[in-house]
Design a protein around this nucleic acid. Structure first.
Lengths: 344, 344
DNA sequence: CTGAAAGCGCTTACAG
DNA sequence: CTGAAAGCGCTTACAG
């Protein structure tokens, strides 16, 4: 069934049916009525595919995400969906699972589908993908991160400042042995900024701070493994700073499983303020990336950029230190003896 | 740029270009070469929209989910995406946020988009939506639940048996006061089966079991609130059986926040074996819905059903009781005094 | 206010 | 092996 059937049934031309469908004026009430009732009677739904072919608009936004299964990502996606929906856009979510081939294939599908815009959330995107996007010329925006030297606008928090502030908070609590848990070792802007902020605070402190940096990926499992290795090396930090909440909760769980008390024995902080950070016990002290604001700003800027060509390069959204229950003041030798107690 | 540009550049007809694009044989190697290099040079991507218009296939599967933000859902979606992708299908995820209007709008978009099939995961779908789906005649499948009297095939675990088994496990541990936390109060098959299984075990036990049933939604917040109210009423159960892990973890967190020890003071069990159940501490004893198998079976059956008309109504997938750390044997008066101790 | 005609970018018989 | 033509289901000038 198609527009012709509706036209025939209601005794008007398909042009008129199309006009009714698109809510144009200049259709007599009488014909409008007839068309509407024919549509209802036939259960007709216009063919989106055919319409997109001629209008060259899909009202679709492609979203490239490396791993939906991380709480930060699905929360932000859920929020973006809500906002985009209100604006008449739908999301097409592409879960690349960190695999470059999947990324390429999704990108080319997105191109074939003629989506109207792209939200990028994977900083470790392959060179090839970035080149593809540029060549394609699609309106795109990086959310909660950035790709340096890429001309792609981004909406994010100031990761350097946030990381520095959180580190200073730990130092101020008296911690002098800090374990920094990074995500992936590969070069990307967010990791670099957070690491730089951490180093800045640590190296320019009036105190003598020792630190270790460990790499993994962004999952809880990875946080768990990294922490486990650290403990097995018998080098006990007094505080752990992980650059994602999943990582931090993984580390925390490992600590808990080994019999440590948090924050009494060891303090732990994370990054993101994703759902897991408030669900875990003790509640995780973390840097808040304002998910709603990030999603809102990102979607709105992207939509504004579709069809326009002025685009600001970088938009900062405010971060916040969320002080919760996973940190305590380090009490010199006492804490140390606690650790010893547990080891043996 | 379109297929004509490619045809012109390579000096063949667009029919031939189309043949190359679709990997048909009966194209001379010479022309195939020319076309391929022209495509590469121009950076041409075929227009998916135009293709879909003529083939009437989109290779898209619509997924209706009430709340992506629940761990069970995003895990199963992630898994379905992986499997569908391998089979050449992509998912179009529709997050309805439990709102009937959104459900209706997404459904009609899906219909306009001419998706090839539908995965349903929302049992409390409105009558109107179900009617729409029937009228539309789209191949669909209900995953991890079912809609009674709807003719929609479903893939799920035997919720009745699973719930009964879990309840018997609690009874066997000596629990005689059990709090059952349901999700929504509205009638739907999964809740009914789980409740029926619970009641069957409780009412036909050789022991005298007392129980309470509380309703909320499926979120952690809801589990927390329900537990809080229970505690405030000073009616302490010795075990809590929640019908989702989120609900259970919410309840567990409340208990923890009130100073109870789990499982020493109170045992808690959940349902789903979603990620949160293994991340929380103590690890949650729960009924496993095998996410991978559910996703795999669901997607494969749906794809098989597209274009065929024989469909089995209901497919059971095996569940499993995952005994972890959140339950302990109830020790008569001692447990009771523990509770008293905490109250005052 | 209304409709006939052209066209969006493909694929698919059909004929050769 | 190859191509001209029709057609998928819409929208959009254009003319009235």
């Amino acid at each position: 069934m198609n527009i012709n059937d509706v036209a025939q049934k209601s005794g008007v031309s398909k042009t008129t049916v199309s006009r009714v469908l698109n809510n144009e004026k200049y259709v007599s009430d009488e014909k409008r009525e007839k068309v509407l009732s024919a549509i209802k009677e036939l259960g007709y739904a216009p063919n989106w595919v055919a319409r997109s072919l001629v209008t060259k608009k899909t009202n679709l936004i492609g979203v490239i995400v490396p791993e939906v299964d991380l709480s930060f990502y699905y929360s932000i996606i859920s929020e973006m969906e809500r906002i985009a929906f209100e604006r008449g856009y739908k999301l097409f979510i592409c879960n690349t699972l960190h695999r470059p081939e999947k990324e390429i294939e999704y990108l080319s599908l997105l191109k074939e589908m003629r989506v109207d815009g792209l939200i990028l959330m994977h900083e470790e995107m392959s060179e090839q993908s970035i080149k593809e996007i540029k060549k394609w010329g699609i309106t795109s925006l990086f959310l909660s991160g950035e790709i340096l030297n890429s001309d792609i606008p981004s909406v994010l928090i100031d990761n350097y400042a946030a990381s520095k502030a959180m580190t200073e908070y730990l130092i101020q609590l008296g911690h002098k042995k800090i374990q920094f848990i990074a995500g992936n070792e590969s070069e990307h802007a967010t990791l670099n900024s957070r690491l730089a902020g951490f180093l800045e605070a640590v190296q320019h402190s009036s105190e003598e701070i020792t630190y270790k940096i460990a790499y993994g990926d962004y999952t809880m499992e990875s946080g768990y493994e990294i922490m486990k290795k650290t403990l097995e090396n018998k080098k006990y930090p007094t505080a752990v700073f992980a650059i994602s909440d999943d990582l931090a909760v993984g580390a925390m769980n490992c600590l808990l499983d080994y019999g440590f008390q948090i924050p009494k024995d060891i303090s732990v902080v994370g990054f993101d303020a994703s759902k897991i950070s408030i669900v875990c016990r003790p509640r995780l002290t973390t840097v808040e990336q304002p998910i709603e604001l990030l999603a809102k700003t990102g979607i709105e800027k992207l939509i504004a950029n579709i069809g326009s060509s002025i685009k600001e390069k970088k938009t900062y959204v405010p971060y916040q230190l969320l002080i919760r229950e996973s940190c305590a003041r380090f009490k010199g030798g006492e804490g140390l003896s606690n650790l010893e107690r547990i080891r043996h």
